[in-house]
Design a protein around this nucleic acid. Structure first.
Length: 374
DNA sequence: GCACCACCCGCA
DNA sequence: GCGGGTGGTG
């Protein structure tokens, strides 16, 4: 059933990488020792777990099971997918070592933040997910993406929960562009609590289908072989896609490993530790000019894989100062992390709750802000 | 080029 | 009121 791949946690820390805000679709089942992560692809569900030296993987296929002859083939495909998705040909240890020699701040990062690498995601899923990310947090984005799959994509298969085998969990692939392009999609998404992003998603999907039809997906994939600037220009044409979201997609699914998405958080880090201008306290607006400055400065420091380095810094900061992603026992897959604060301290952020509720059926409210008193 | 502002929702 | 932002306006 389970197959294994020799892989130290210094090369990949599943619990962090799958839950740090790159992909929002991995689910965790089971509890601490027997915990596994599951992701629904187009034709199968991939299950993962790991110990200190090994990555275990399992392929689950929909009902008409393949003959005993074909099963090994499917499993081989999963292995190919894993190598691609986790970019396992990139040696993370070499990169960490390189970043540490280049950057003092980086060398102060604790070893418990090793194994953080960039996933190579599907560009459409990545694009839509990050359109959801504006003015938002990981917990809610995750819920939104799950709802998106549940409502716009037929379930591929169901399999039992780990804790309670009685419970069947359904797995849906990410919706195709055509499924999100229909005009009525906006209202459905609004009812699902997507807010103003509902329109962005429908419009973006529509633009994609309108311009490329069934080749929409391969158009996006083609941007992997396009220059960073050209690819970014293409992404910026979509509605709800600004510089930050475009850069996320460039980095996370289009192989632009040097790109650093600059959000307010990265902005703050840049000010505190890398001498960029801006005020620490006030919400000084991140102008395009300043965005570029931060970007070039950090690329100069970190080099070719700057986007990957940014992800490590961002994630370590996030995990050090929020309960997000680590439960009270701190059972990340890493051995007992020392409770030392990271040097990348920032103003404390509210811990994100993980309650799973029904999608809120909010009534669309139109409320204009009252005119200021004269 | 840059500074505001509204926009959905959830949690202060 | 404010968030891992964007689009529209002045």
């Amino acid at each position: 059933m389970w197959q294994s791949l020799s892989l130290p946690q210094s090369q990949l820390c599943l619990s962090t990488v799958l839950k740090c805000g790159q992909s929002f679709r991995w689910t965790v089942v089971g509890t601490s020792p027997n915990q596994e992560y599951r992701l629904c692809l187009r034709d199968r569900v991939v299950c993962l777990k790991q110990d200190t030296a090994t990555l275990f993987y399992r392929t689950v296929l929909p009902d008409p099971q393949p003959s005993a002859l074909h099963l090994p083939l499917r499993q081989a495909e999963t292995l190919v997918w894993l190598n691609d998705y986790f970019q396992l040909d990139v040696d993370l240890c070499t990169l960490y070592a390189e970043w540490k020699t280049r950057d003092k701040v980086f060398s102060s990062i604790e070893t418990r933040f090793s194994g953080i690498r960039m996933l190579r995601q599907d560009p459409f899923e990545n694009l839509i997910s990050f359109i959801c990310s504006s003015n938002n947090n990981i917990a809610r984005i995750t819920k939104m993406v799950q709802n998106l799959c549940k409502h716009f994509s037929a379930p591929l298969l169901s399999m039992p929960d780990l804790g309670d085998q009685q419970i069947q969990l359904q797995y849906h692939p990410f919706p195709l562009p055509t499924a999100l392009a229909a005009p009525n999609v906006e209202q459905i998404l609004r009812d699902l609590g997507f807010g103003y992003r509902a329109k962005f998603i429908q419009k973006t999907a529509h633009m994609l289908v309108e311009a490329h039809g069934d080749a929409a997906h391969s158009f996006l994939l083609g941007l992997r072989n396009t220059s960073t600037d050209k690819a970014r220009d293409e992404l910026l044409k979509f509605v709800g896609v600004g510089r930050k979201v475009a850069d996320c997609v460039l980095l996370m699914s289009l192989d632009k490993k040097e790109v650093i998405p600059v959000d307010t958080h990265v902005h703050q880090i840049a000010i505190k530790h890398y001498g960029l201008k801006g005020s620490l306290s006030s919400k000084s607006t991140l102008t395009p000019r300043l965005y570029e400055e931060i970007n070039t400065r950090l690329v100069t420091i970190w080099g070719d894989y700057a986007g990957w380095a940014h992800s490590v810094l961002f994630t370590s900061d996030l995990k050090a100062f929020s309960s997000y992603g680590v439960d009270a026992a701190g059972h990340s897959a890493l051995p007992s992390p020392p409770p030392t604060p990271s040097p990348l301290k920032r103003k404390s952020s509210a811990p994100e709750t993980t309650d799973v509720g029904l999608p809120s059926l909010a009534k669309p409210k139109r409320r204009r802000r009252a005119a200021p008193p004269t």
